[in-house]
C-alpha cells in the first residue's frame, strides 16, 4: 500500500461549458502538512468540494486511505475521516460553543434516534463521552471558557478556533482548512501556525490547507501544490516552489501581483 493518505488523479470538473478543474492531480502523504495555493479563481475551493463530496467530478479518481471516495455523499466522506472548515465562518448560529463542537461527533456516535428518545443508559453514557471529548477538542484549540455562550457571539478569532475544534471532533485522519488565516491578526496567525503543527504532531491528523498568506504557507507546510486555472502547475517543497518560474508567472500574471506571492 502506498504511503499516501489522499491521492487525486486526473480530476476534471465542469459546470456546463465552463471547466473549473482540468486533469488536476496531487497527493497528501500520511502525516504531512500540505498547502494548496494559487491565484484567485484557480479552483482551490472547488477541489475541496470535490474531495468532500459536494461536487461530483466528471473524471478522475480520489483515493483516501486506500479506498476510492469519489462519488461518496458528504456525510460518508466525513465518516471515512476527512473534516473541513470553510473560508467564511459557518458555525451553527443559535447553538452554544459546546453544542457546535458536539454536533461534529455525530458520525462517531452509535446511539440512534430511538435510543435517544428512550434515553437508554448506553445513550446517556455516550452523551457524557461526547461532551468530554468536545471539551477536550475546545481546550486543544485554545478555547477554555464560554462553552455555553452562543457561538456567534464569540470574537472572530475564537469562532475560527471553534470551527477547527468542531472539525477535530469528527475524529478525522485528514483535516482540510480553507483559508484558516483569513481575517486573523499577526499574533493570531502565529498561534494558528503552532496549532496546525500540534494538530499533526499531537493528534496525528494530516493537514491540507488553502491559504493566501504565503508567509504562513512557507512556514507551516512541508509540501506545496500550486493550482492555476484548474491545472496543477507545480508541486514540491516550499523552497522549490519559491523559485519555480511557472509559479512566479502565474502570480505575476495577475493584477494583484504585489499582494500575491511574497517571494
Amino acid at each position: 500500500m502506498s504511503d499516501m493518505l489522499l491521492e487525486l488523479s486526473g480530476i476534471e470538473l465542469a459546470f456546463g461549458a465552463y471547466t473549473v478543474l482540468e486533469d488536476a492531480s496531487f497527493s497528501v502523504p500520511k502525516g504531512a502538512i500540505v498547502s494548496l495555493i494559487g491565484p484567485n479563481g484557480a479552483g482551490k475551493t472547488s477541489l475541496f468540494n470535490c474531495i468532500t463530496g459536494f461536487y461530483r467530478p466528471r473524471k478522475g479518481s480520489i483515493r483516501f486511505d486506500g479506498r476510492e471516495i469519489r462519488g461518496l455523499k458528504p456525510h460518508h466522506v466525513t465518516a471515512a475521516g476527512i473534516a473541513r472548515t470553510f473560508q467564511n465562518l459557518r458555525l451553527f448560529r443559535e447553538m452554544t460553543v459546546l453544542e457546535n463542537v458536539m454536533s461534529g461527533m455525530h458520525c462517531r456516535t452509535r446511539a440512534g434516534a430511538f435510543a435517544a428518545i428512550l434515553r437508554t443508559p448506553m445513550q446517556r453514557a455516550e452523551e457524557a463521552e461526547i461532551q468530554e471529548f468536545s471539551r477536550e477538542c475546545l481546550e486543544f484549540v485554545g478555547v477554555r471558557e464560554g462553552f455555553d455562550r452562543e457561538a456567534t457571539t464569540l470574537a472572530y478569532g475564537h469562532q475560527r478556533r471553534v470551527e477547527i475544534a468542531r472539525a477535530l471532533a469528527t475524529k478525522p485522519k485528514l483535516l482540510l482548512l480553507d483559508e484558516p488565516a483569513a481575517g486573523l491578526n499577526a499574533g493570531e496567525k502565529q498561534q494558528l501556525i503552532e496549532l496546525i503543527g500540534r494538530i499533526r504532531d499531537e493528534r496525528g491528523v494530516s493537514v491540507l490547507l488553502i491559504e493566501h498568506d504565503t508567509g504562513l504557507v512557507m512556514k507551516v507546510s512541508e509540501r506545496i501544490s500550486v493550482l492555476d486555472h484548474g491545472v496543477m502547475i507545480a508541486e514540491g517543497k516550499p523552497k522549490e516552489i519559491q523559485s519555480n518560474p511557472k509559479v512566479i508567472e502565474a502570480y505575476l500574471g495577475q493584477e494583484d501581483a504585489e499582494a500575491g506571492l511574497d517571494l
Binding site: 468532500t52 463530496g53 458528504p74 456525510h75 465518516a79 451553527f92 468542531r166 469528527t170
Partner: peptide, 10 residues
Amino acid sequence: IDKDMCQLMG
C-alpha cells in the same frame, strides 16, 4: 441552521 455544514459533520 445549515444543511451543507451538517453533511460535513457526518
